[in-house]
């Protein structure tokens, strides 16, 4: 079993430089909070491999994703993370379900919602076997669509499966992005403001889905939010910026594991 996600890095953001220290155990969620402009998004982008820290290391499970001293920087694709970026960045030429299927097809086999748990190994081919799904090439369009729609359905979006991103509302787009991040096996989940455009009901549903998926798969997850209530919704520990350094803070739901509560 992987030892989770750990990062100890220094990041540059514009003129400013700041440090981030994170440790996320498998099957748990760390909620990153802080004022806007503090660098929450930069932390997620560094964990995903979209920007390189100036110093430090990032490890996930038994793999080193980034090591400034050793000159190691694993490409985003090879980190196999499920990511929601703040700008969502849905593929504008594809319908909602095809956006979800795009990720599922390239994840070494789609994960069925609620199916057997299958945390991705380091690129191992055993993933399809674990999730009981044949490789993307052999799945028919009907299967791929059904799987993608099942994810959208969990977020209340099944009836919008054929709409293009331009025809979706902000909240709908955000849920498609979340479905895309969840729809394939991943070594970690990195979600940057995944609930900010959702109304209260949709927010509760989406948070519960994230919480149960993290517990089911046993992967570490980092969620950025400006809503402190998300710590309780997700059963997450909280990290915040103290003296310009992102670090774990006590109190609240600290240390509570997300599993066992999932249903």
């Amino acid at each position: 079993m992987p030892e989770g996600l750990s990062a100890d890095v220094r990041l540059e953001r514009g003129e400013r430089s700041f440090a981030a220290r994170l440790t996320v155990a498998p099957g748990t969620i760390v909620l990153v909070v802080g004022p806007s402009g503090a660098g929450k998004t930069s932390v997620v982008r560094a964990l995903a491999g979209l920007v390189a820290p100036t110093e430090g290391t990032i490890r996930c499970g038994d793999r080193t994703w980034f090591d400034a001293a050793a000159g190691r920087d694993v490409r985003p694709r090879d980190r196999r993370v499920g990511v929601v970026v703040q700008e969502l960045a849905l593929l504008p030429h594809l319908s909602a379900w095809r956006n979800v299927a795009f990720a599922a097809d390239r994840g070494g086999g789609a994960l069925r919602p609620g199916g057997p748990s299958a945390p991705a190994t380091s690129g191992g081919p055993s993933v399809h076997a674990a999730s009981g799904t044949p490789p993307a090439g052999r799945r028919t369009r009907r299967d791929r669509r059904a799987e993608a729609v099942a994810w959208l359905d969990l977020l209340g979006l099944a009836d919008r499966a054929d709409a293009r991103p331009a025809d979706l509302s902000g909240g709908e787009r955000q849920r498609v992005a979340l479905a895309r991040a969840l729809a394939r096996p991943s070594t970690a989940l990195l979600l940057d403001e995944p609930f900010s455009a959702l109304d209260d009901a949709a927010h509760a549903v989406a948070a519960e889905l994230v919480r149960s998926e993290v517990a089911r798969r046993g992967v570490p997850a980092v969620v950025v939010s400006h809503d402190p209530g998300d710590a309780a919704r997700l059963g997450a520990r909280t990290s915040a910026f103290v003296d310009g350094t992102l670090q774990a803070v006590g109190g609240g739901a600290a240390g509570r594991r997300a599993d066992g509560v999932a249903g």
Binding site: P76, R80, V83, V85, A89, L90, P92, D105, R106
Partner: peptide
């Protein structure tokens, strides 16, 4: 950001070019 999202979804560089 859309090209990066395709990479994060597991697309190879050739796939990012041809499919996105």
């Amino acid at each position: 950001a859309v090209l990066d999202a395709a990479r994060l979804s597991g697309a190879r560089e050739s796939g990012v070019f041809l499919r996105v």
